[in-house]
């Protein structure tokens, strides 16, 4: 459990550091002091800048909190998908689950419906994300296996269909909704607010708890459907449960931050290289690692260029796309072809 401890410490340090960096610099001691004061403890210094406390609680903390939730959700969803597809290349943005969830979210943004209040976007993203995951799952499996080439081609087809629908939503949108959609499509934590965080939180929590409960059975599933069944796994039920959990996690992360690609590919892969393939460690460690990665990526997105908030999806793809290509080549070599 050293890895979990290490990642937890890294996450806490990064949360404090990231919250202090920006146009208005706030040193870590003042951040801890500000948190202590909110908790009713008169410990540590308060931010000396008059706007410091305000900037922390109105802008920085919700943004960092959303980064944590989105990163944990995406990395866990990636690890779950790889387990259920039995394929290290399965990932929400690669196979089109993220863009599928984005279809529901963009339709809600464009039409402005709010039938479930604060949760409307997240629920819509969950529903279309679920539909997409079910579709990809049924299309990419042949006789109990998912070949790499089938998975990647299915991803291309599903992604292009989803982007057609998103384009349509962008086309019918009015000017302000269109601007919102364009930036959101590129992936950004710019719109992070406390209501967004509270809308995402329950989805992420339920998803993470469920993933840990599924871990043991996912280990068995890597033996193949038949052998897993012989060891007492209800394979069909497990697959369906994992698909719903993936849709929950992806829906939650896409709803307010758009499509942030490759987090679910890079993080579980690195964790597997360090800690081995067992899901009982892989899933919680991926959640922490994903949170760390997205905090760092978001920090880069908003500080690389002065006074500019770059799309975070651009940053993760810059790292993730070459990584994906490397992994694709390696899997191909190992399997001796495109099978």
């Amino acid at each position: 459990m050293g890895l979990i401890g290490l990642l937890t410490v890294a996450l806490i340090v990064l949360v404090i550091v990231a919250a202090g960096i920006g146009q208005l610099h706030i040193p870590p001691a003042e951040i801890i002091g500000s948190i202590m004061h909110r908790l009713g403890l008169d410990l540590g210094p308060m931010p000396h800048h008059p706007q410091g406390d305000n900037a922390l609680w109105k802008v920085r903390f919700p943004r960092v909190a959303l980064a944590v939730l989105v990163g944990a959700s995406l990395a866990t969803a990636g690890a779950l998908m790889q387990g259920v597809f039995g394929n290290p290349l399965a990932e929400p943005s690669v196979v089109g689950v993220s863009s599928g969830a984005a279809v529901g979210a963009s339709l809600v943004i464009v039409t402005g419906v709010t039938f479930l209040g604060n949760w409307t976007i997240a629920v819509a993203a969950f529903i279309t994300g679920l539909g997409t995951t079910l579709l990809v799952h049924s299309l990419s499996r042949a006789s109990g296996r998912t070949e790499v080439v089938t998975l990647v081609l299915t991803g291309i087809a599903v992604n292009s269909l989803a982007f057609t629908l998103i384009s349509f939503a962008t086309f019918i949108a009015n000017t302000s909704a269109r601007e919102q959609l364009v930036f959101w499509q590129l992936g950004s934590l710019n719109g992070a607010t406390w209501p967004a965080v509270t809308a995402v939180l329950p989805f992420t929590l339920v998803g993470l708890i469920a993933s840990v409960a599924l871990a043991r059975r996912l280990d068995l599933l890597s033996l193949g459907d038949r052998s897993a069944g012989h060891l007492g796994v209800d394979v069909e039920r497990l697959r369906l449960t994992v698909i719903v959990v993936v849709a929950l996690l992806v829906g939650a992360s896409v709803a307010f931050s758009g499509i942030i690609g490759f987090v679910g590919l890079v993080v579980p892969h690195l964790i597997r290289m360090i800690a081995g393939p067992g899901h009982r460690l892989l899933l919680p460690a991926s959640a922490l690692g994903g949170a760390v990665l997205v905090i760092v990526a978001d920090l880069l997105a908003r500080t690389l260029i002065r006074n500019a908030d770059l799309p975070i999806g651009m940053i993760t793809s810059l790292v993730g796309a070459p990584f994906f290509f490397w992994l694709l080549r390696r899997t191909r070599t190992r399997q001796g072809g495109w099978g």
Partner: peptide
């Protein structure tokens, strides 16, 4: 318990 003809595994256990 069942032992099948061909065993495969998707991750390096």
């Amino acid at each position: 318990a069942v032992m099948l003809q061909q065993a495969t595994i998707s991750f390096p256990f």
